[in-house]
């Protein structure tokens, strides 16, 4: 599948130095993650409590769900800047349906549909009209935010029914609902990517579009589909978010696309498409969650949190670059 490996001349012996480098490349992020956790465990008595670990998972769930869709998009060499706005739009749409008493199923469908439709528009503009993904979704970032204000005249939707709110504070056994939803989505989309033909197509399109096309893959269809996936998941995240904040807010999700992209990049998925994994993304999302949570536990100012997050993003891309140089 990967054309680049075929052209690389085979080396008979791998120098120890290079082996070391490969090791660092592969495990740098997990190592940073573990070190961070150990440091936090020593610095705060609360870090390793079951409750705090649940908090981290719950706090990661929204960004995690967005990052899953984002992984699909980035694997095809695309980007989706509109997820934060789509999240808000879907949240308001489903919130309105729920507040009018149409029941949870109708509200859920409305939110998912709203997300998928806007995602499909992204997909159409990118795949059919060949507008660069950055531009197409930058446009949608603005359009979807505007629609969000239009739909409910700029007001939040409060008075959400209890059934809807249970998406945010309900529980399944010991796990709270956002975690359950996050886990289910992660598992489903991981399996799709790993075990289905469609999943292999996603990699192939990002790896080398031309050879993907010559081998008979419907490149445009695949590209279209990943934006639908991203929009759909943004819609889902929007509903979980509204439930967590007990009202659907028109200004929800501002700049969430940045954290989602960061999670994907930290997780080792290349912005130039074709390589990466969903498991890496989940790690990336968790790492961001742990940084935010940990620095909160330690009472570190949010100003430093932003610095830390930024440094880790750049470090992740540095690793990606050095990986490429080796080839």
């Amino acid at each position: 599948m990967n054309a680049q490996t075929l052209t690389t001349p085979a080396t008979a012996t791998v120098a120890p130095r290079q082996r070391m480098r490969t090791f660092i490349d592969r495990f740098a992020m997990p190592i940073i993650f573990v070190v961070l956790c150990v440091v936090l465990a020593f610095s705060s008595e609360y870090f390793l409590t079951a409750r705090n670990l649940m908090d981290i998972l719950r706090q990661t769930s929204i960004n995690g769900i967005l990052a899953i869709g984002m992984t699909y998009v980035i694997l095809t060499k695309g980007i989706d800047l509109s997820v934060g706005s789509i999240l808000a739009f879907a949240g308001i749409c489903s919130g309105l349906i729920a507040a009018q008493g149409h029941g949870l199923l109708a509200a859920l469908s409305a939110g998912l549909l709203a997300g998928a439709v806007l995602g499909a528009v992204n997909g159409f503009v990118v795949a059919r009209l060949s507008v660069p993904p950055f531009v197409a979704t930058l446009g949608m970032l603005s359009v979807a935010r505007g629609l969000t204000y239009i739909v409910n005249d700029g007001s939040p939707v409060a008075d959400l029914p209890d059934a809807y709110l249970s998406l945010g504070d309900g529980k399944l056994g010991p796990l709270s609902m956002p975690i359950v939803i996050f886990a289910a989505v992660a598992l489903l989309f991981w399996m799709v990517l790993k075990y289905t033909t469609y999943g292999r197509y996603v990699y192939a399109v990002g790896g080398n579009e031309k050879s993907a096309r010559t081998s008979g893959i419907g490149v445009r269809k695949v590209i279209f589909s990943v934006y639908v996936v991203s929009g759909l998941l943004a819609g889902l995240a929007g509903m979980v978010l509204s439930a967590r904040t007990t009202s659907a807010l028109p200004q929800a999700g501002l700049s969430y696309e940045l954290d989602a992209i960061a999670a994907v990049v930290i997780g080792g998925t290349s912005l130039s498409g074709g390589t990466g994994s969903l498991v890496g993304t989940l790690f990336g999302a968790l790492l961001i969650g742990v940084i935010n949570n940990g620095l909160n536990l330690l009472g570190v100012s949010s100003y430093y949190q932003q610095v830390a997050k930024g440094l880790i993003i750049v470090l992740a891309v540095l690793l990606d670059v050095s990986r490429k140089k080796q080839r």
């Binding site: 705060s44 705090n52 908090d55 706090q59 904040t245 949570n293 909160n296 536990l297």
Partner: peptide
Amino acid sequence: NYDANTQNNQIETMITQ
């Protein structure tokens, strides 16, 4: 950071602590 969900998370963190 002007975000309701972030505030939610922070209150949870305070409860945990």
